[in-house]
Design a protein around this nucleic acid. Structure first.
Lengths: 194, 194
DNA sequence: CATCGCTGTGTACGGTCGTACACATGCCCG
DNA sequence: CGGGCATGTGTACGACCGTACACAGCGATG
């Protein structure tokens, strides 16, 4: 019985194939790392023939670059959305704490891909534009609520705390994270006081 | 001591070969990343025959693990030495700022290896002990001068700021870094004051 | 000094990779 | 309705990888 007349021989002309391949690539990166990402693995994950890889992309570097670009864009959007309802300084602290503890849109898997991107960008200047844009955007979000210097501090803090949390085997105290963030956010440029 | 009669045909029995291979491996990781680290490349860098690789190490994983262990140990020693003369809280701020800006014993290359380690540890639990030990030691150093929570904050801050600095194409303001660190270090557990 | 055994090495094998490219396929136009 | 052509794919090639392993060379031993 043929429910679908077109089925076996070849899936001709599906226009979203490129995107599906890129999505599959992100998944493969998350699971196997950049080092373990191969044409064949991505092709299998996207359920497309191997030949599609070189047809749609000039090479593996091209595919990786596009995958990272999509991932970074998605992370930036998630990041911005996470701070959409923030009003007060206390909200910032809360939002950042949630971010670090994975209660925003991003999970450990997403962060792993981000770190793959960082490391890849360290060696491939072509990826710097992606990381550069991503960092500028994340900092811009924070600068809506705090001064530029504090924004850089909090941004760096997020990066480091998340990395340590991801690598840590034991649990990480949320209250402590909250306290740390609060200290970083508190003072503006003018002297302490409280 | 004689002037070394052994030279041409084969370098038999040099007892530090293992160590030299490990050192070469660290260099290769720094230059090509874990993904680009191969037996042949390391062998060439250490100027030993390919056969020595499987003779001295059970496999590539073993070699990488040992290389990372040595690197982490060296980083920890550097870290501790860098804080040896620290006395006051202001000294801490100064020391951390220097650390972030590469004026301690560690340069960008060393940090790159560290990030390779982090990412590798993310996927290989066997490397977790190395990262775990390294993080415990670095935090212990800071805890000599500040409370545990602050230590975790500063530790994370260092990680994030260095990563951002390494990835940043433009210059990073040292004064700003100093300011950020100072904020993170200032208050102990008791209420603000200044 | 002859022999044995162990330390160390050259080489080869099976496997996987990226990539190119000849060819099948279905659409469109005349 | 039939042929030309752009789109898409199966397959094969050369390169490089990790690893095993038969063997070469030296030092110790009797």
């Amino acid at each position: 019985m043929t429910a679908e007349p077109l089925d076996r021989p070849a899936r001709r002309h599906d226009p979203e194939r490129r995107q599906r391949i890129v999505e599959a690539a992100i998944g493969v990166i998350a699971e196997h790392g950049v080092a373990g990402t191969t044409h064949r693995l991505v092709a299998a994950a996207a359920d497309v023939p191997l030949g599609s890889m070189t047809y749609h992309f000039t090479g593996l570097d091209d595919l990786l670059a596009q995958a990272f670009a999509v991932h970074a864009e998605r992370m930036a959007v998630t990041y911005e959305a996470h701070f959409a309802d923030v009003r007060s300084r206390d909200d910032v602290v809360e939002a950042v704490t949630d971010l670090v503890h994975g209660h925003a849109g991003a999970d450990d898997r997403d962060w792993a891909v981000s770190y793959e991107l960082y490391l890849a960008a360290l060696r491939d200047p072509a990826l710097r534009t992606v990381t550069e844009t991503w960092m500028r955007r994340s900092r811009s979000v924070l600068e809506q609520f705090v001064d530029a210097t504090t924004a850089r501090g909090v941004d760096g803090l997020i990066e480091g705390l998340v990395m340590h949390k991801v690598l840590s085997t034991g649990p990480v105290s949320r209250a402590e994270t909250h306290e740390i963030i609060a200290r970083a956010v508190r003072p503006t440029t003018e002297g302490a006081a409280q």
